[in-house]
Nucleic acid binder design. Sequence first.
DNA 1: TTTTTTTGTTAGTTAGAACTAACTAATTAT
DNA 2: ATAATTAGTTAGTTCTAACTAACAAAAAAA
Lengths: 142, 142
Amino acid sequence: MNDQIKIGITRFSRLISNAEGKAKDLCDVKDLTSTQLNYLETINELDNPNLTELSAVLGLKKPSVTVVIERLITKGCIYKTQSDADRRTTHIHLTEVGKQINQRHDFAHEYMSGFIAKSLSANEQQEFVRLLNKVLDSNKVK
Amino acid sequence: MNDQIKIGITRFSRLISNAEGKAKDLCDVKDLTSTQLNYLETINELDNPNLTELSAVLGLKKPSVTVVIERLITKGCIYKTQSDADRRTTHIHLTEVGKQINQRHDFAHEYMSGFIAKSLSANEQQEFVRLLNKVLDSNKVK
DNA sequence: TTTTTTTGTTAGTTAGAACTAACTAATTAT
DNA sequence: ATAATTAGTTAGTTCTAACTAACAAAAAAA
């Protein structure tokens, strides 16, 4: 049984991965490197981080991050604001363009949902969602 | 309903992504760049491709691929063999080390299976696999 | 047989992104 | 008030990995 679960997961992972690939084509991400995309996703997950936080989470030295951030500002994906509390620190925000780029996961998941919706009957869909959530909840995924 | 599917998929994607991350830590992939990992995965998917095929699939120019392949040989992940049919062409193979690196997806899927197995009852597991396969088969994922 | 095409390599260039060292400005501690 | 720490930048280096141009060797076409 465990083997069958694994086979299913393997195939399902591939489906998700394909969906992400398609989503990447839809968004105009072409002029961003994978490093830059990774920065944008990390900034999105953290809440307007400063440079120190960001470099800590990315596991990189601050000067390295400074330079990439500079480039992302030039590209219009992010902007900086000075902190009121500490005038040395600046917070990094996504611009609307930057946020759009992060929607590619969303596109992928939408695409997947469409697949599932058309493959399963209403009852099956309900059961699928229930099982999915049971797995997720017992493993505390937000 | 479609919304609930999407929410489930979003969370499930994150779970898979976490599992892949953990698997990455387990394998000693640390001295390989993400480009190099991508090459190894592509070589694994194709069947002992030659350089022309590989560069076509990767969407890169041949000289670029030549150089990365050289480095992967130095690192002991791949080796080349000359074709019998055409002495100009060489086929690229993964070494045992190269194959091990590709097992990280396998680790991730194993890890996921464990999660699912312990979250669901025997009946639920069976139903989950059935639904998974129904989705996958109606979308022709190998 | 000679020419053209194809496979892959070598050489040289460029851009991205990491690093360290050294710095300024702001804040905190003494 | 002065010294030490912290946030972020600037300058300069290195490595990876992409590119084009030019090539040799083998195969296919003329």
